[in-house]
Simulated assay, not measured.
Amino acid sequence: MTKTEITLRFVRFSQWVQSLESLSDDEWFQPLRHGKWSVSEIIAHLTYWDRYFLKERYPKMKAGAKLPRAIDVDVMNQRASLYAKSGVKKDDLIKEFLETRDLIVKAINARSEEDMDTVFFNRGHEETLRDYLINLCEHDRHHKLQIEEFLNRKYETEEMN
């Protein structure tokens, strides 16, 4: 996947997230399934991890670098969940996501196509910025599918009633 294709995926995902502004508060805050996150928690989760990537990961992704161990995933996810439930407004959370994602697109565009394939080490394994970003695209896709499945179930239930 080229740098342009990756940035296009990020931009399209941002557009999709922006479309979530039309959700009702019930749709925004209701868990996708019993014991699962809500749409708001997923968007906070993505925002928190994007910020972490920008601040802690991206600057260290240089040739031969050994990335420090990632922070505790459960702690980060819990913080994001609590933030989503803190009373932050839907529009504000979406805006935070969009601003952070825009910074990632700018950071990617600041690198050359060759830089995308510079090898560094993440948890002892060789990785490139391209690999890392493709994984982020897949992570986005995973959560998008979860949200769409939830909304489709919700709309089908409403139509049946």
Rank of each mutant, 00 (worst) to 15 (best):
V39A: 02
S40Y: 06
E41S: 03
I43V: 13
I43S: 00
A44K: 06
A44E: 06
T47N: 14
T47I: 06
D50H: 13
Y52M: 01
F53D: 03
K55I: 13
K55M: 10
R57S: 07
Y58E: 12
Y58I: 08
K60N: 13
K60S: 10
K60L: 15
M61D: 04
K62G: 09
A63Q: 12
A65Y: 09
K66G: 04
K66P: 03
K66Y: 09
L67N: 03
L67K: 03
L67F: 09
P68I: 06
A70G: 13
I71L: 10
V73I: 11
V73K: 07
V75S: 10
M76G: 03
M76N: 08
Q78A: 14
R79L: 13
A80Y: 06
A84C: 04
A84R: 02
A84N: 04
G87F: 02
V88A: 01
V88L: 04
K89G: 08
K90S: 01
K90A: 00
K90P: 02
D92C: 07
D92M: 07
D92E: 13
D92R: 08
D92N: 08
L93A: 01
K95W: 09
E96Q: 15
F97S: 00
L98A: 05
L98I: 12
E99C: 09
E99P: 08
R101K: 12
R101A: 04
R101F: 05
L103T: 12
I104L: 15
V105L: 02
A107K: 00
I108S: 01
N109Q: 15
N109C: 06
